[in-house]
Amino acid sequence: MIQYAAIILFVFGLYGLFTNKNVIKMIVSLNIMELGLNIFIISIGFVYDGIAPIITSTSGSGLLYVDPLPQALVLTAIVIGVGTTALALAVAKSIHNKYNTLDLGELEDIL
């Protein structure tokens, strides 16, 4: 079920990306899209009644764990997302410095 929510969030992000002309709103949409994707990745590893995948001295071998791999993958995906967002914001600042606007609709008339 949570996978549907993640896909809806992903589609919301894509919709925002294609309908907005404001650079900052586009970056926010990009982040919403990535958030949907990250939730989708985490949901793949979910096991009903599963516990955290940490082996301790008290945990036995017969316990049910959630899949730890998607959690590791999502950490990497989050870090990459932060990197691209930072770069996108830097480019947005560069657009603002050069054209004094953040609206790509206005820029289409200038360029």
Partner: peptide, 12 residues
Amino acid sequence: PVGTFHYLVLGV
């Protein structure tokens, strides 16, 4: 920067 931004968005 506008060209770079379009590239970045589509790339992501």
